[in-house]
Amino acid sequence: MNEQGAPLFEIRDLCKYFTLDSKNTLKAVNHVSLTIRKGETVGIVGESGCGKTTFGRTLKRLYTATSGEVLYKGQDIFKMNRAQAHQYAKEVQMIFQDPYSSLDPRMTVREIVREGMLNHGIYKGDRAAQDKRIHELLTMVGLNEEHADRFPHEFSGGQRQRIGIARALAVNPEVIICDEPTSALDVSIQAQVVNLLKNLQEEFGLTLIFISHNLSLVKYISDRVGVMYLGSMVELAPSDLLYEEPAHPYTEVLISAIPIPDPDVQKKRSAIRFNGELPSPINTRDDVCAFATRCRYATPECSGRAPKLTEVSPDHFAVCDRVRKKDNA
């Protein structure tokens, strides 16, 4: 859709480690590299604990990276001065997973949406203009003016998530990082919120980073999808390609596990299952393939060396040695 867009984010070798004690380190994000173009939607999927939320939060500068760099419009976000960081905070907004705890219960909707405008000097303190904009935003996300003076507890989960979206849009952002924006919502409400995000993106040319464990939803909204496993990005591909021809064995299992709401399709599917569960992300080794313990194709070499990044086809990358072999044959 937006292949021509210029790179907005260039993420190089990003690592975020949490030190637990003198011996143990949790490698939540481990050498992730990714380029995000302007106007595209990048989905990030993976099991719980794979580091997708930490990745999103690091991009928003809520965490400082352990190593690596994130270039936003050519500028490293971890080396910004105060003014640059302030501008970055405005341009990159976030929508959080839990619509119940991410809104201040003591502020009215109007105050919640206005806060960002005040911080970033939008309409220069002209309260009438701000109010007009607040009403516009609320209408845009499917609420109305009367809702502006209510408190968050008066709204349902879907409505709160809309308030969160209005708050993010209030400062005219360029990027919105959505961290599981619909996982607390019912399916019928989820569809409303996702359609809203998609419409807003088209209208304002937003760049979306969509983090979710719901693979069907990610496929639906994203142009490209990155699959994370134990802190690493194991596969990155345009979304249709990823679901049709997954290259990494992990992606293959993940896709085979998605329940499809169609009994006939389900009966015909062959299920691939994991052996065992997600290993602990503490003290993972970089010199072996992290997935080898659960991989059905694993050979002894897999636990002896780190797999290399392979370009399977243009724009489709996978970190697995098996992929390379298959292509050469």
């Binding site: 349902s156 879907g158 409505q159 019912d186 399916v187 019928s188 409400i189 989820q190 569809a191 409303q192 996702v194 359609n195 998609k198 719901n214 693979l215 069907s216 939803l217 496929k219 639906y220 979304s239 249709d240 679901y243 896709i255 998605i258 499809i260 709401p261 169609d262 399709v265």
Partner: peptide, 20 residues
């Protein structure tokens, strides 16, 4: 209203308007 894997990429999800 369920997003499906076999749905075309540009389609919009149909949804049930309103709230429970």
């Amino acid at each position: 209203s369920i997003p499906r894997l076999d749905a075309p990429h540009d389609a919009r999800l149909t949804y049930i308007g309103g709230t429970p």
